[in-house]
Deep mutational scan, measured.
Amino acid sequence: DEDSERELEKLRKNNASKEEIKEVLKRLGFSEDEAKKLAEKAG
């Protein structure tokens, strides 16, 4: 959803580590696997 998109955008701009991105995604309700895949894509 839009909030998670914004959250990811912010992380990308701040050069967050894949680990940080994954944690945020998991907080947003993604499964471990989904979060890992998305973090890879974002990283």
Rank of each mutant, 00 (worst) to 15 (best):
D1M: 12
D1N: 11
D1R: 14
D1F: 14
D1V: 12
D1T: 13
E2K: 13
E2R: 12
E2S: 13
E2C: 14
E2P: 12
D3G: 11
D3H: 11
D3A: 14
S4E: 06
S4K: 09
S4D: 08
S4W: 15
E5N: 10
R6C: 13
R6K: 12
R6G: 06
R6P: 04
R6E: 07
E7T: 13
E7G: 01
E7M: 14
E7R: 07
L8R: 02
L8Y: 04
E9A: 09
E9V: 06
E9T: 07
E9G: 06
K10Y: 12
K10L: 11
K10P: 05
K10Q: 12
K10G: 08
L11H: 03
L11F: 05
L11W: 02
R12C: 15
R12K: 11
R12A: 08
R12D: 04
R12F: 15
K13H: 09
K13D: 09
N14V: 07
N14L: 09
N14Q: 12
N15E: 07
N15M: 09
N15K: 09
N15F: 08
A16K: 05
A16W: 05
A16Y: 08
A16N: 03
A16L: 11
A16T: 05
S17E: 04
S17N: 05
S17C: 07
S17G: 06
K18A: 12
K18E: 11
E19I: 04
E19F: 04
E19P: 00
E19V: 04
E19K: 04
E20R: 07
E20Q: 11
E20L: 09
E20P: 00
E20A: 09
I21L: 07
I21K: 00
I21F: 05
I21A: 01
I21M: 08
I21N: 00
I21W: 10
I21S: 00
K22A: 14
K22L: 15
K22S: 08
E23V: 02
E23M: 03
E23F: 00
E23A: 08
V24P: 00
V24D: 02
V24I: 09
V24N: 02
V24R: 05
L25N: 00
L25P: 01
K26A: 03
K26Q: 10
R27I: 09
R27M: 11
R27V: 08
L28S: 01
L28W: 04
L28H: 03
L28T: 00
L28N: 02
G29E: 03
G29S: 00
G29H: 00
F30K: 03
F30R: 01
F30A: 03
F30V: 03
F30D: 01
F30I: 03
F30L: 07
F30G: 00
S31N: 07
S31Y: 03
S31D: 07
E32M: 02
E32P: 03
E32T: 04
D33G: 05
D33L: 08
D33F: 07
D33V: 07
E34I: 07
E34G: 03
E34N: 04
E34R: 02
E34C: 13
E34W: 06
A35E: 01
A35W: 06
A35F: 04
K37F: 11
K37I: 12
K37S: 10
L38D: 01
L38P: 00
L38H: 05
L38V: 06
A39C: 15
E40T: 03
E40D: 13
K41D: 11
K41C: 14
K41G: 12
K41W: 14
A42L: 15
A42C: 14
A42M: 15
G43A: 11
G43Q: 10
G43E: 10
